[in-house]
């Protein structure tokens, strides 16, 4: 089974699995000094679209409420702007904590984050194969794993525009030279050991 099929077929988990309890510990350490002041929420450009505000998310992280955390959209809506990190009066690495939650969602392949996780994994697959991202390949991989026949149409107008300007080259997915294969493999080995 190639890696793309793997992205597709990995068992999606509706509930946060047991190992998450342990992987939450380092994130709890990051935010344990939170005083619940809400500066992060007030600073977040995406808070309007979140179900839990960032402040509420940290509360749940501290309490280890993994079911609540991993059913909430909040951390996947972080666009990594670093306003909360900049303004946190306790100097907590809040953006890094958001990313750490995304990493758990990707690793555990949690169903509620399928769209973002598959998008990021498709991007990384193209980089793994060629060393640099090939936009056309990356989006083709993404459409393939999303299996939504209507999805490509949403991107068609922009795609055509970019192609007509020669800003993306028309290349179908290929194996590539595996430029970064060794690096990716070593990272996986170290992370799973």
């Amino acid at each position: 089974m190639n890696r793309l099929e793997k992205i597709e077929s990995e068992q999606e988990s509706e509930t946060a699995p047991a190992p998450v309890i342990d992987s939450l510990a380092p994130i709890r350490d990051m935010v344990s000094a939170c005083i619940q002041c809400g500066t992060c929420t007030g600073s977040c450009p995406n808070a309007f679209a979140m179900d839990l505000t960032p402040r509420q998310l940290w509360y749940n992280v501290i309490r280890g409420e993994k079911e609540t955390i991993f059913h909430s959209k909040t951390f996947s809506l972080c666009s990594v702007c670093y306003y909360c990190t900049l303004r946190c009066p306790r100097g907590l690495p809040l953006t890094d904590a958001m990313s750490a939650l995304k990493q758990i969602a990707a690793k555990e392949n949690l169903a509620p984050y399928k769209k973002s996780v598959r998008f990021y994994k498709s991007f990384m697959e193209s980089v793994r194969r060629h060393g640099r991202v090939r936009e056309m390949e990356f989006m083709t991989l993404y459409f393939m794993v999303m299996k939504n026949p209507l999805l490509p149409f949403r991107f068609a107008p922009l795609g055509m525009k970019l192609m007509s300007k020669g800003k993306v080259s028309v290349e179908l997915p290929s194996k590539g030279s595996g430029t970064l294969e060794a690096i990716f493999r070593k990272v996986e080995e170290l992370e799973n050991s």
Binding site: Q103, A106, T179
Partner: peptide, 15 residues
């Protein structure tokens, strides 16, 4: 090669 953009950080810290 690619720096990983925002995709690497969303999948693996070490990567």
């Amino acid at each position: 090669t690619c720096c990983g953009a925002s995709a690497a950080e969303a999948t693996s810290y070490l990567l």
